[in-house]
């Protein structure tokens, strides 16, 4: 299947001119990645759906503030998605909803998911799961949980300095894990 690939500059240009083609391209190529992040933060489908809508609206309306010297378009969007999801997670209304329910297990529970989504959820949590447990907790808490390093240090009862160095090591290892996967992935594509 011939798929048109646009450069980030081209995508930005479409978005800036509010061209519907820009939205379609964005949704087709990035909605999955964004939804995955959002879901892993809020963990409930209904909330994820709502946040997803907010995120696209935010991207659409604030594209003029995108600065390519600071990050790629993809990262910029991921940050919008992650931050919106964490805001929702920490919001009062969400916390109230959670109070009467058991809080799902952070890493492995795919509550409220269709069977297919559960499959995706579990399958690829493996990357982060492949990390040693102490690394994994850091990434999950910081990235998907929105905890600051101080909060993490306090909760895990370890020095802040350790959190910092361990985080660095965790990311280096995560990068390695993702690299390997990519090679296998490419292999499948080329066969």
């Amino acid at each position: 299947m011939k798929k048109q690939i646009l450069s980030p500059d081209q995508i930005v240009s479409l978005l800036v001119s509010r061209d519907e083609k820009g939205f379609n391209y964005l949704y087709e190529n990035y909605s999955g990645a964004l939804y995955g992040v959002i879901f892993r933060v809020v963990r409930y489908e209904e909330e994820a759906n709502e946040v997803m809508q907010d995120v696209f609206v935010k991207i659409w309306n604030s594209i003029s503030s995108y600065d390519k010297a600071k990050a790629t378009l993809y990262t910029w969007m991921l940050n919008i998605a992650r931050n919106s999801a964490i805001d929702r997670l920490k919001s009062k209304s969400f916390q109230n909803d959670l109070q009467n329910q058991s809080i799902p297990d952070f890493v492995n529970d795919g509550m409220g998911l269709s069977t297919e989504q559960k499959h995706e959820f579990n399958e690829v949590q493996e990357h982060v799961n492949k990390l040693r447990e102490d690394y994994r907790i850091l990434i999950n808490k910081a990235y998907f949980g929105g905890f600051t390093q101080e909060e993490i240090a306090e909760e895990l009862q370890i020095p802040l300095g350790t959190v910092k160095t361990r985080t660095r090591a965790a990311l280096i290892e995560l990068r390695e894990i993702l690299k390997d996967f990519r090679i296998i992935f490419l292999f499948f594509l080329l066969k």
């Binding site: 999955g32 759906n49 991921l78 690829v124 949590q125």
Partner: peptide, 11 residues
């Protein structure tokens, strides 16, 4: 970015 791509979930 890589993590997000590979952990993508279809909405």
């Amino acid at each position: 970015e890589k993590l997000a791509t590979q952990q993508a979930m279809e909405p």
